[in-house]
């Protein structure tokens, strides 16, 4: 699995510069959005679990 991923990354980056750079930007931007929403959900769950606290981290 890891070998296949390494092979894909090295081959793709070396062979197709423009699609590769767009791929890198899309992956990083998409992953950033996923992480942002992940933390949003985590803090909402924390608030739901502990409703008596007035303030929570992430507010």
């Amino acid at each position: 699995m890891f070998d296949a991923l390494s092979e894909f990354l090295t081959t793709f980056s070396g062979s197709y510069p423009l699609p590769w750079s767009l791929f890198v930007m899309a992956v990083v931007a998409g992953f950033s959005l996923v992480l942002f929403f992940f933390w949003e959900v985590v803090f909402r769950l924390l608030r739901a679990v502990n409703p008596f606290r007035r303030t929570q981290m992430g507010e």
């Binding site: 991923l5 990354l9 980056s13 070396g14 510069p17 423009l18 590769w20 750079s21 890198v24 930007m25 992956v27 990083v28 992953f31 950033s32 992480l35 942002f36 992940f38 933390w39 803090f43 981290m57 992430g58």
Partner: peptide, 27 residues
């Protein structure tokens, strides 16, 4: 990112790993 990845000088796997920790630091 566009300029450096065009010249193949970005390691996306390294970025993704550090981004996970950075997102926690961001909070």
């Amino acid at each position: 990112t566009l300029l450096y990845s065009l010249s193949n000088h970005v390691d996306p796997m390294m970025v993704v790993i550090m981004l996970v920790a950075a997102s926690a630091g961001t909070q």
